[in-house]
Design a protein around this nucleic acid. Structure first.
Lengths: 159, 159
DNA sequence: CCGCTTGATTTGACTGGCTCAAGAAAACGG
DNA sequence: CCGTTTTCTTGAGCCAGTCAAATCAAGCGG
């Protein structure tokens, strides 16, 4: 399974390099990560990788369809390897946790707004905002309604 | 209709000020604008308004429910006055034009992902990406497929 | 296995969108 | 008209991300 990525890269017309394999490795372990977290984690595998290299790698991966970029409002972009199924996302307002959701409607779902207003729609992006299970519990414990943006926000690395 | 905003502001617990009225005025004329465009346009009414004042006003308006903020991926945040109906948006990849779409499903639509994964969902945000009518025509005229990000992107002020 | 060509990465400077903080100004109740 | 409180102005600063030049490595041909 390790060299599978090499073939993926090659068939996408990309060279196989340590930084790219390191980034892919991080992406496998963390379904939704921001560029900075990727850089930090990738250094465990390839210590000398620079932040800009990560941006470069991610751009290459997204450009060739190996990765997908999502940009939840109010935070840095996140990257994921699950591509080609146009699934959607649940985002926790409190901790930034992101989970995948398969779309309810079908294979290429949601591509039919009620009135397209002359637009040629090619993608529908759906984000469900709410509170993840953990944060619901946390609210119930230390008094809720503070509205404080938890310091642990922007993690979004788990699950 | 002019002093209607004054009441709206007051009943939201906000003071009525020139900058706020100026911003509201711009918002009425331009359904989907970014902060910078608002600042420029608002100066026609209130010349001394500063960019930061615009951010402050917008934060107040959004916080009190008079305006809504949307953040299309890859661009600055846009603001609109249409609130309370959780409608969605069509965004043109080429020129950034934004149009409203009423949701197909019902009153509080889309709030039911197939599997909520333990999340308490309170909002569904839907963005349809595509090409607006004008940009479809433009593509057909000067050879298409360039993929060039038009310089006029980030306008999104019209319609 | 070696060197060459091209593509990738490093390094460093820089931008745009936005926020924070302190002081001056204006709103509005009395 | 005055005082209190909110809001605006002014100015500094932050973060995610981009751009460009120079170095370095991948993978091809020999």
């Amino acid at each position: 399974m390790e060299t599978a990525w090499e073939e993926q890269l090659r068939s996408a017309g990309l060279r196989v390099t340590r930084p790219r394999l390191a980034v892919l490795d991080v992406l496998v372990g963390h379904p939704h990560v921001d560029a900075d977290t990727i850089a930090t984690a990738a250094r465990a595998v390839h210590p000398s990788i620079s932040p800009q290299a990560v941006y470069g790698v991610l751009k290459a991966l997204v450009g060739s369809g190996l990765a997908r970029r999502i940009e939840p409002a109010g935070g840095p972009a996140l990257y994921e390897l699950r591509v080609g199924d146009n699934h959607h996302h649940l985002v926790c307002r409190e901790c930034g946790l992101v989970a995948d959701v398969d779309c309810v409607v079908g294979a290429a779902p949601c591509l039919a707004p009620s009135d397209a207003a002359g637009f040629a729609v090619d993608e529908a992006e759906v984000v469900f905002w709410g509170l993840c299970a953990d944060c619901q519990v946390a609210r119930r414990q230390h008094g809720y309604g503070t509205g404080t943006t938890s310091s642990s926000i922007r993690e979004g690395v788990r699950a």
